[in-house]
Design a protein around this nucleic acid. Structure first.
Lengths: 225, 225
DNA sequence: ATAATTTTGTGATATGGATCACATTTTATA
DNA sequence: TATAAAATGTGATCCATATCACAAAATTAT
Protein backbone atom coordinates (compact mmCIF):
# COMPACT_ATOMS: atom_id res chain seq x y z
CA UNK A 1 0.00 0.00 0.00
CA UNK A 2 1.44 3.33 -1.00
CA UNK A 3 2.17 5.98 1.55
CA UNK A 4 0.05 9.09 1.16
CA UNK A 5 1.64 12.31 2.31
CA UNK A 6 -1.24 14.29 0.84
CA UNK A 7 -3.65 12.98 3.43
CA UNK A 8 -1.18 12.81 6.26
CA UNK A 9 -2.71 14.19 9.43
CA UNK A 10 0.62 15.68 10.41
CA UNK A 11 1.60 17.27 7.13
CA UNK A 12 4.08 20.11 7.53
CA UNK A 13 3.53 23.70 6.47
CA UNK A 14 6.24 23.15 3.93
CA UNK A 15 4.73 20.01 2.40
CA UNK A 16 1.32 21.59 2.15
CA UNK A 17 2.85 24.03 -0.32
CA UNK A 18 3.62 21.21 -2.77
CA UNK A 19 1.70 20.60 -5.96
CA UNK A 20 -0.18 17.35 -6.63
CA UNK A 21 2.63 15.83 -8.64
CA UNK A 22 5.21 16.96 -6.15
CA UNK A 23 3.43 15.51 -3.17
CA UNK A 24 2.96 12.26 -5.03
CA UNK A 25 6.66 12.14 -5.59
CA UNK A 26 7.20 12.78 -1.89
CA UNK A 27 4.78 10.00 -0.98
CA UNK A 28 6.62 7.43 -3.01
CA UNK A 29 10.01 8.39 -1.56
CA UNK A 30 9.08 8.51 2.06
CA UNK A 31 8.94 5.63 4.57
CA UNK A 32 7.05 5.84 7.84
CA UNK A 33 8.01 3.90 10.96
CA UNK A 34 7.19 3.95 14.66
CA UNK A 35 9.82 4.16 17.36
CA UNK A 36 9.85 3.65 21.11
CA UNK A 37 11.74 5.32 23.93
CA UNK A 38 15.47 4.89 23.54
CA UNK A 39 15.43 4.17 19.82
CA UNK A 40 18.14 5.93 17.91
CA UNK A 41 16.78 7.97 15.03
CA UNK A 42 20.01 9.44 13.80
CA UNK A 43 23.56 8.62 14.76
CA UNK A 44 26.29 11.22 15.09
CA UNK A 45 29.13 10.42 12.72
CA UNK A 46 27.08 8.22 10.41
CA UNK A 47 26.45 9.05 6.78
CA UNK A 48 23.07 10.66 6.32
CA UNK A 49 21.02 9.93 3.26
CA UNK A 50 17.62 10.86 4.64
CA UNK A 51 15.77 13.75 6.11
CA UNK A 52 13.56 12.71 9.01
CA UNK A 53 10.15 14.14 9.68
CA UNK A 54 8.98 13.53 13.23
CA UNK A 55 5.23 13.19 12.82
CA UNK A 56 4.31 12.48 16.43
CA UNK A 57 6.22 12.06 19.66
CA UNK A 58 9.22 13.52 21.38
CA UNK A 59 12.95 13.22 20.77
CA UNK A 60 16.22 14.63 22.00
CA UNK A 61 19.07 16.01 19.93
CA UNK A 62 22.38 15.20 21.56
CA UNK A 63 26.05 15.19 20.79
CA UNK A 64 29.08 13.53 22.32
CA UNK A 65 31.16 16.13 24.10
CA UNK A 66 34.73 15.76 25.31
CA UNK A 67 33.62 14.57 28.74
CA UNK A 68 30.00 13.63 28.61
CA UNK A 69 26.93 13.46 26.45
CA UNK A 70 25.30 16.80 25.89
CA UNK A 71 21.61 17.12 25.17
CA UNK A 72 21.16 20.10 22.89
CA UNK A 73 17.40 20.24 23.03
CA UNK A 74 14.12 18.43 23.23
CA UNK A 75 12.25 18.25 19.94
CA UNK A 76 8.51 17.96 19.85
CA UNK A 77 6.63 16.71 16.81
CA UNK A 78 5.83 17.78 14.20
CA UNK A 79 9.23 18.84 12.93
CA UNK A 80 11.93 18.10 10.42
CA UNK A 81 15.15 16.60 11.69
CA UNK A 82 18.59 16.39 10.22
CA UNK A 83 18.29 18.95 7.47
CA UNK A 84 21.64 20.56 8.32
CA UNK A 85 23.29 17.15 8.32
CA UNK A 86 22.32 16.42 4.75
CA UNK A 87 23.80 19.56 3.33
CA UNK A 88 27.54 19.93 3.25
CA UNK A 89 29.49 16.90 4.34
CA UNK A 90 26.50 14.58 4.82
CA UNK A 91 27.90 13.27 8.07
CA UNK A 92 25.44 13.53 10.92
CA UNK A 93 26.70 16.16 13.29
CA UNK A 94 24.48 15.03 16.09
CA UNK A 95 22.44 12.09 17.28
CA UNK A 96 18.70 12.04 17.73
CA UNK A 97 17.09 9.63 20.17
CA UNK A 98 13.41 9.13 20.78
CA UNK A 99 12.29 9.76 24.36
CA UNK A 100 8.58 9.08 23.92
CA UNK A 101 6.85 6.77 21.41
CA UNK A 102 7.09 8.49 18.07
CA UNK A 103 6.31 8.07 14.42
CA UNK A 104 8.81 9.21 11.87
CA UNK A 105 9.02 9.52 8.11
CA UNK A 106 12.32 9.13 6.38
CA UNK A 107 12.46 11.18 3.23
CA UNK A 108 14.94 10.39 0.53
CA UNK A 109 17.50 13.17 0.33
CA UNK A 110 17.48 13.54 -3.44
CA UNK A 111 13.72 13.83 -3.44
CA UNK A 112 13.93 16.48 -0.77
CA UNK A 113 16.48 18.45 -2.75
CA UNK A 114 14.41 18.05 -5.89
CA UNK A 115 11.42 19.54 -4.11
CA UNK A 116 13.52 22.41 -2.77
CA UNK A 117 14.67 23.24 -6.28
CA UNK A 118 11.23 22.85 -7.88
CA UNK A 119 9.09 24.69 -5.39
CA UNK A 120 10.25 27.97 -3.98
CA UNK A 121 7.41 28.16 -1.45
CA UNK A 122 8.45 24.80 -0.06
CA UNK A 123 12.05 26.03 0.06
CA UNK A 124 10.96 29.18 1.81
CA UNK A 125 9.22 27.25 4.56
CA UNK A 126 12.26 25.08 5.09
CA UNK A 127 14.41 28.18 5.26
CA UNK A 128 12.09 29.58 7.90
CA UNK A 129 12.66 26.50 9.99
CA UNK A 130 16.43 26.77 9.66
CA UNK A 131 16.34 30.43 10.62
CA UNK A 132 14.30 29.76 13.71
CA UNK A 133 16.70 27.03 14.75
CA UNK A 134 19.55 29.46 14.67
CA UNK A 135 17.84 32.21 16.61
CA UNK A 136 16.71 29.74 19.21
CA UNK A 137 20.16 28.32 19.68
CA UNK A 138 21.72 31.77 20.07
CA UNK A 139 19.30 32.61 22.82
CA UNK A 140 19.66 29.34 24.61
CA UNK A 141 23.40 29.53 24.49
CA UNK A 142 23.44 32.88 26.25
CA UNK A 143 20.79 32.16 28.80
CA UNK A 144 22.06 28.80 29.89
CA UNK A 145 25.52 29.95 30.74
CA UNK A 146 24.44 33.08 32.54
CA UNK A 147 21.98 31.49 34.90
CA UNK A 148 22.62 29.35 37.93
CA UNK A 149 21.29 25.86 38.18
CA UNK A 150 18.06 26.87 39.93
CA UNK A 151 17.22 29.16 37.05
CA UNK A 152 18.03 26.54 34.45
CA UNK A 153 15.96 23.88 36.17
CA UNK A 154 13.07 26.31 36.41
CA UNK A 155 13.46 26.87 32.67
CA UNK A 156 13.37 23.17 31.92
CA UNK A 157 10.24 22.67 34.01
CA UNK A 158 8.53 25.65 32.39
CA UNK A 159 9.49 24.44 28.94
CA UNK A 160 8.11 20.99 29.62
CA UNK A 161 4.96 22.42 31.07
CA UNK A 162 4.32 25.04 28.40
CA UNK A 163 5.91 23.97 25.15
CA UNK A 164 5.95 20.20 25.43
CA UNK A 165 2.93 19.13 27.49
CA UNK A 166 0.81 22.25 27.79
CA UNK A 167 -0.11 21.30 31.35
CA UNK A 168 1.14 22.03 34.88
CA UNK A 169 1.28 18.27 35.48
CA UNK A 170 3.39 15.91 33.44
CA UNK A 171 5.73 12.95 33.57
CA UNK A 172 9.37 13.81 33.12
CA UNK A 173 10.54 12.38 29.81
CA UNK A 174 14.14 12.54 30.98
CA UNK A 175 16.07 11.07 33.88
CA UNK A 176 17.77 13.34 36.41
CA UNK A 177 21.01 12.57 34.66
CA UNK A 178 19.63 13.59 31.28
CA UNK A 179 18.27 16.81 32.70
CA UNK A 180 21.77 17.43 33.98
CA UNK A 181 23.16 16.86 30.48
CA UNK A 182 20.64 19.30 29.11
CA UNK A 183 21.63 22.16 31.40
CA UNK A 184 25.26 21.27 32.00
CA UNK A 185 25.06 20.14 35.55
CA UNK A 186 25.30 16.93 37.57
CA UNK A 187 22.44 14.57 38.38
CA UNK A 188 23.02 15.25 42.08
CA UNK A 189 22.44 18.94 41.62
CA UNK A 190 19.24 18.28 39.70
CA UNK A 191 17.98 16.10 42.55
CA UNK A 192 18.91 18.70 45.11
CA UNK A 193 17.14 21.53 43.30
CA UNK A 194 14.06 19.36 42.85
CA UNK A 195 14.00 18.77 46.60
CA UNK A 196 14.51 22.44 47.22
CA UNK A 197 11.64 23.41 44.94
CA UNK A 198 9.46 20.80 46.62
CA UNK A 199 10.29 22.12 50.10
CA UNK A 200 9.44 25.61 48.91
CA UNK A 201 6.05 24.39 47.72
CA UNK A 202 6.83 25.26 44.11
CA UNK A 203 6.47 21.77 42.69
CA UNK A 204 5.50 18.34 43.87
CA UNK A 205 7.68 15.44 42.77
CA UNK A 206 6.71 11.78 42.78
CA UNK A 207 9.29 9.87 40.81
CA UNK A 208 8.86 11.01 37.24
CA UNK A 209 5.61 12.80 37.94
CA UNK A 210 5.89 16.55 38.32
CA UNK A 211 3.20 18.92 39.44
CA UNK A 212 3.87 22.61 39.21
CA UNK A 213 2.08 24.13 42.18
CA UNK A 214 3.33 27.70 41.97
CA UNK A 215 3.86 28.72 38.38
CA UNK A 216 4.44 32.37 39.33
CA UNK A 217 7.26 31.57 41.70
CA UNK A 218 8.82 29.20 39.19
CA UNK A 219 8.69 31.90 36.56
CA UNK A 220 10.37 34.31 38.98
CA UNK A 221 13.19 31.88 39.59
CA UNK A 222 13.59 31.48 35.86
CA UNK A 223 13.66 35.25 35.32
CA UNK A 224 16.08 35.99 38.11
CA UNK A 225 18.55 33.30 37.19
CA UNK B 1 27.52 55.76 -10.01
CA UNK B 2 25.68 52.48 -9.84
CA UNK B 3 26.86 49.74 -7.57
CA UNK B 4 28.05 46.69 -9.46
CA UNK B 5 27.69 43.41 -7.67
CA UNK B 6 28.70 41.54 -10.79
CA UNK B 7 32.24 42.81 -10.61
CA UNK B 8 32.46 42.84 -6.83
CA UNK B 9 35.78 41.37 -5.70
CA UNK B 10 34.05 39.80 -2.74
CA UNK B 11 31.04 38.30 -4.46
CA UNK B 12 29.51 35.41 -2.53
CA UNK B 13 29.11 31.86 -3.81
CA UNK B 14 25.41 32.47 -3.70
CA UNK B 15 25.45 35.69 -5.72
CA UNK B 16 27.70 34.17 -8.37
CA UNK B 17 24.84 31.81 -9.16
CA UNK B 18 22.62 34.70 -10.23
CA UNK B 19 21.76 35.47 -13.84
CA UNK B 20 22.67 38.75 -15.50
CA UNK B 21 19.28 40.30 -14.91
CA UNK B 22 19.18 39.03 -11.38
CA UNK B 23 22.55 40.41 -10.44
CA UNK B 24 21.61 43.74 -11.97
CA UNK B 25 18.58 43.80 -9.76
CA UNK B 26 20.78 43.02 -6.78
CA UNK B 27 23.19 45.81 -7.73
CA UNK B 28 20.48 48.42 -7.79
CA UNK B 29 19.07 47.34 -4.41
CA UNK B 30 22.26 47.13 -2.50
CA UNK B 31 24.14 49.90 -0.70
CA UNK B 32 27.78 49.61 0.30
CA UNK B 33 29.31 51.44 3.25
CA UNK B 34 32.48 51.29 5.30
CA UNK B 35 32.50 50.93 9.08
CA UNK B 36 35.10 51.31 11.80
CA UNK B 37 35.71 49.50 15.07
CA UNK B 38 32.80 49.90 17.43
CA UNK B 39 30.20 50.74 14.78
CA UNK B 40 26.92 48.97 15.24
CA UNK B 41 25.87 47.06 12.16
CA UNK B 42 22.68 45.59 13.49
CA UNK B 43 20.84 46.32 16.70
CA UNK B 44 19.09 43.64 18.76
CA UNK B 45 15.42 44.49 19.09
CA UNK B 46 15.28 46.80 16.09
CA UNK B 47 13.18 46.10 13.03
CA UNK B 48 15.24 44.57 10.28
CA UNK B 49 14.58 45.43 6.68
CA UNK B 50 17.94 44.53 5.26
CA UNK B 51 20.27 41.64 4.88
CA UNK B 52 23.89 42.60 5.43
CA UNK B 53 26.78 41.20 3.47
CA UNK B 54 30.09 41.72 5.19
CA UNK B 55 32.50 42.14 2.28
CA UNK B 56 35.67 42.75 4.24
CA UNK B 57 36.57 43.03 7.89
CA UNK B 58 35.62 41.44 11.18
CA UNK B 59 32.54 41.70 13.36
CA UNK B 60 31.06 40.18 16.49
CA UNK B 61 27.56 38.84 16.95
CA UNK B 62 26.37 39.53 20.47
CA UNK B 63 23.21 39.51 22.50
CA UNK B 64 22.15 41.04 25.77
CA UNK B 65 21.90 38.34 28.40
CA UNK B 66 20.22 38.60 31.79
CA UNK B 67 23.43 39.69 33.48
CA UNK B 68 25.92 40.71 30.88
CA UNK B 69 26.58 41.00 27.20
CA UNK B 70 27.29 37.71 25.53
CA UNK B 71 29.42 37.48 22.42
CA UNK B 72 28.11 34.60 20.36
CA UNK B 73 30.88 34.52 17.82
CA UNK B 74 33.36 36.39 15.73
CA UNK B 75 32.39 36.73 12.10
CA UNK B 76 35.00 37.08 9.41
CA UNK B 77 34.22 38.46 5.99
CA UNK B 78 32.96 37.51 3.51
CA UNK B 79 29.65 36.42 4.95
CA UNK B 80 25.97 37.20 5.09
CA UNK B 81 24.60 38.60 8.32
CA UNK B 82 21.10 38.78 9.69
CA UNK B 83 19.34 36.34 7.42
CA UNK B 84 17.53 34.64 10.33
CA UNK B 85 16.39 38.02 11.59
CA UNK B 86 14.61 38.88 8.39
CA UNK B 87 12.49 35.77 8.33
CA UNK B 88 9.77 35.37 10.89
CA UNK B 89 9.18 38.35 13.13
CA UNK B 90 11.71 40.66 11.47
CA UNK B 91 13.00 41.82 14.83
CA UNK B 92 16.74 41.52 15.11
CA UNK B 93 17.48 38.78 17.57
CA UNK B 94 21.03 39.85 18.05
CA UNK B 95 23.35 42.78 17.58
CA UNK B 96 26.33 42.88 15.28
CA UNK B 97 29.22 45.24 15.98
CA UNK B 98 32.27 45.78 13.85
CA UNK B 99 35.57 45.04 15.60
CA UNK B 100 37.91 45.81 12.71
CA UNK B 101 37.42 48.23 9.80
CA UNK B 102 34.88 46.63 7.51
CA UNK B 103 32.89 47.19 4.37
CA UNK B 104 29.31 46.08 4.28
CA UNK B 105 26.52 45.89 1.73
CA UNK B 106 22.96 46.27 2.84
CA UNK B 107 20.63 44.34 0.61
CA UNK B 108 16.99 45.20 0.44
CA UNK B 109 14.99 42.38 2.00
CA UNK B 110 12.35 42.15 -0.73
CA UNK B 111 15.03 41.91 -3.37
CA UNK B 112 16.73 39.18 -1.42
CA UNK B 113 13.48 37.23 -1.12
CA UNK B 114 12.76 37.78 -4.79
CA UNK B 115 16.13 36.28 -5.68
CA UNK B 116 15.54 33.34 -3.36
CA UNK B 117 12.25 32.61 -5.08
CA UNK B 118 13.58 33.12 -8.61
CA UNK B 119 16.83 31.24 -8.44
CA UNK B 120 16.94 27.87 -6.73
CA UNK B 121 20.74 27.63 -6.92
CA UNK B 122 21.02 30.92 -5.07
CA UNK B 123 18.51 29.63 -2.51
CA UNK B 124 20.47 26.43 -2.16
CA UNK B 125 23.67 28.30 -1.35
CA UNK B 126 21.90 30.39 1.26
CA UNK B 127 20.46 27.25 2.77
CA UNK B 128 23.94 25.78 2.97
CA UNK B 129 25.04 28.79 4.97
CA UNK B 130 22.13 28.47 7.37
CA UNK B 131 22.81 24.77 7.86
CA UNK B 132 26.44 25.38 8.64
CA UNK B 133 25.49 28.02 11.17
CA UNK B 134 23.38 25.54 13.03
CA UNK B 135 25.91 22.75 13.09
CA UNK B 136 28.58 25.15 14.23
CA UNK B 137 26.48 26.50 17.06
CA UNK B 138 25.59 23.01 18.30
CA UNK B 139 29.23 22.11 18.52
CA UNK B 140 30.27 25.31 20.16
CA UNK B 141 27.52 25.07 22.71
CA UNK B 142 28.68 21.66 23.87
CA UNK B 143 32.37 22.32 23.83
CA UNK B 144 32.28 25.63 25.60
CA UNK B 145 30.41 24.38 28.61
CA UNK B 146 32.40 21.20 29.00
CA UNK B 147 35.81 22.75 29.00
CA UNK B 148 37.52 24.75 31.67
CA UNK B 149 38.70 28.27 31.07
CA UNK B 150 42.21 27.26 30.02
CA UNK B 151 40.75 25.09 27.29
CA UNK B 152 38.38 27.79 26.12
CA UNK B 153 41.09 30.42 25.99
CA UNK B 154 43.28 28.06 24.03
CA UNK B 155 40.36 27.62 21.63
CA UNK B 156 39.95 31.35 21.17
CA UNK B 157 43.64 31.84 20.49
CA UNK B 158 43.70 28.97 18.01
CA UNK B 159 40.59 30.27 16.30
CA UNK B 160 42.09 33.72 15.96
CA UNK B 161 45.34 32.31 14.71
CA UNK B 162 43.90 29.80 12.24
CA UNK B 163 40.49 30.96 11.11
CA UNK B 164 40.71 34.71 11.48
CA UNK B 165 44.30 35.77 10.86
CA UNK B 166 46.00 32.69 9.45
CA UNK B 167 49.16 33.54 11.37
CA UNK B 168 50.74 32.65 14.73
CA UNK B 169 51.11 36.37 15.40
CA UNK B 170 48.19 38.77 15.54
CA UNK B 171 46.65 41.68 17.38
CA UNK B 172 43.75 40.75 19.62
CA UNK B 173 40.59 42.27 18.14
CA UNK B 174 38.86 42.00 21.50
CA UNK B 175 39.53 43.32 24.99
CA UNK B 176 40.07 40.91 27.90
CA UNK B 177 36.54 41.68 28.93
CA UNK B 178 35.14 40.81 25.51
CA UNK B 179 37.08 37.57 25.44
CA UNK B 180 35.48 36.81 28.78
CA UNK B 181 32.06 37.50 27.29
CA UNK B 182 32.86 35.17 24.46
CA UNK B 183 33.73 32.21 26.65
CA UNK B 184 31.57 33.00 29.68
CA UNK B 185 34.22 34.00 32.11
CA UNK B 186 35.50 37.13 33.84
CA UNK B 187 38.12 39.50 32.50
CA UNK B 188 40.29 38.69 35.50
CA UNK B 189 40.37 35.02 34.61
CA UNK B 190 41.30 35.83 31.03
CA UNK B 191 44.21 37.94 32.27
CA UNK B 192 45.33 35.22 34.63
CA UNK B 193 45.30 32.49 31.99
CA UNK B 194 47.19 34.74 29.56
CA UNK B 195 49.86 35.21 32.23
CA UNK B 196 49.90 31.49 32.87
CA UNK B 197 50.34 30.68 29.18
CA UNK B 198 53.09 33.25 28.95
CA UNK B 199 54.93 31.82 31.96
CA UNK B 200 54.67 28.38 30.38
CA UNK B 201 56.24 29.71 27.20
CA UNK B 202 53.15 28.97 25.14
CA UNK B 203 52.45 32.51 24.03
CA UNK B 204 54.00 35.92 24.33
CA UNK B 205 51.72 38.79 25.20
CA UNK B 206 52.45 42.47 24.69
CA UNK B 207 49.25 44.41 25.18
CA UNK B 208 47.04 43.40 22.29
CA UNK B 209 49.81 41.65 20.43
CA UNK B 210 49.83 37.89 20.73
CA UNK B 211 52.51 35.54 19.54
CA UNK B 212 51.83 31.85 19.70
CA UNK B 213 55.17 30.26 20.49
CA UNK B 214 54.10 26.68 21.05
CA UNK B 215 51.17 25.77 18.84
CA UNK B 216 51.40 22.09 19.78
CA UNK B 217 51.07 22.71 23.48
CA UNK B 218 48.22 25.15 22.89
CA UNK B 219 46.42 22.55 20.82
CA UNK B 220 46.92 20.02 23.61
CA UNK B 221 45.36 22.37 26.14
CA UNK B 222 42.46 22.89 23.79
CA UNK B 223 41.99 19.14 23.29
CA UNK B 224 42.22 18.25 26.95
CA UNK B 225 39.85 20.90 28.15
C1' DA C 1 51.06 67.51 26.71
C1' DT C 2 48.00 66.76 30.58
C1' DA C 3 44.04 65.11 32.67
C1' DA C 4 40.35 61.93 32.70
C1' DT C 5 38.82 57.48 31.55
C1' DT C 6 39.21 52.85 30.40
C1' DT C 7 41.65 48.66 30.42
C1' DT C 8 44.54 45.42 32.59
C1' DG C 9 47.24 42.45 36.19
C1' DT C 10 47.30 40.16 40.37
C1' DG C 11 46.59 39.01 45.28
C1' DA C 12 42.98 37.66 48.80
C1' DT C 13 38.62 35.75 49.78
C1' DA C 14 34.13 33.64 49.05
C1' DT C 15 31.11 30.27 47.00
C1' DG C 16 28.34 27.54 43.68
C1' DG C 17 28.50 23.20 42.21
C1' DA C 18 31.25 19.07 41.21
C1' DT C 19 32.66 14.98 43.09
C1' DC C 20 32.69 11.22 46.30
C1' DA C 21 30.28 8.05 49.21
C1' DC C 22 26.63 5.29 50.31
C1' DA C 23 21.82 4.21 51.36
C1' DT C 24 17.35 3.72 49.10
C1' DT C 25 14.16 3.29 45.57
C1' DT C 26 12.78 2.08 41.06
C1' DT C 27 13.03 -0.51 36.90
C1' DA C 28 14.48 -4.30 34.03
C1' DT C 29 15.46 -9.18 33.57
C1' DA C 30 15.85 -14.11 34.42
C1' DT D 1 8.52 -13.40 42.04
C1' DA D 2 13.24 -13.04 42.82
C1' DT D 3 17.42 -10.92 41.50
C1' DA D 4 20.29 -7.90 39.15
C1' DA D 5 20.99 -3.37 37.37
C1' DA D 6 19.96 1.34 37.03
C1' DA D 7 18.31 5.59 38.88
C1' DT D 8 17.78 8.58 42.78
C1' DG D 9 18.44 11.38 47.34
C1' DT D 10 21.41 13.48 50.49
C1' DG D 11 25.40 14.53 53.41
C1' DA D 12 30.49 15.78 53.39
C1' DT D 13 34.33 17.58 51.07
C1' DC D 14 36.92 19.99 47.59
C1' DC D 15 38.06 23.07 43.93
C1' DA D 16 37.64 26.12 39.93
C1' DT D 17 36.35 30.40 39.26
C1' DA D 18 33.75 34.61 40.55
C1' DT D 19 34.17 38.58 43.09
C1' DC D 20 36.44 42.23 45.55
C1' DA D 21 40.21 45.41 45.99
C1' DC D 22 43.57 48.26 44.31
C1' DA D 23 47.65 49.55 41.71
C1' DA D 24 49.62 50.09 37.13
C1' DA D 25 49.29 50.76 32.32
C1' DA D 26 47.16 52.26 28.23
C1' DT D 27 43.96 54.84 25.75
C1' DT D 28 41.04 58.86 24.82
C1' DA D 29 39.62 63.44 25.38
C1' DT D 30 40.72 68.32 26.44
Amino acid sequence: MANSCEHCLFISNAASKLSGTQIERLSSNCASITLKRGDLLMQQGALSSNIAYLKTGLAKIHITGPYHEQIIKLIKAPTYLGIPNTFGDKINNYSVTVVEPSSVCFIDLDTFKYLLAQNDKFAYEIMLILCNYEIESFKKCALRTQKQIRGNIADVLLDLSKRIYDSPTFNLPLSRNEIGNLIDTSRESVSRIFSEFENDGIISVAGKKIDILDMIKLQLISDNG
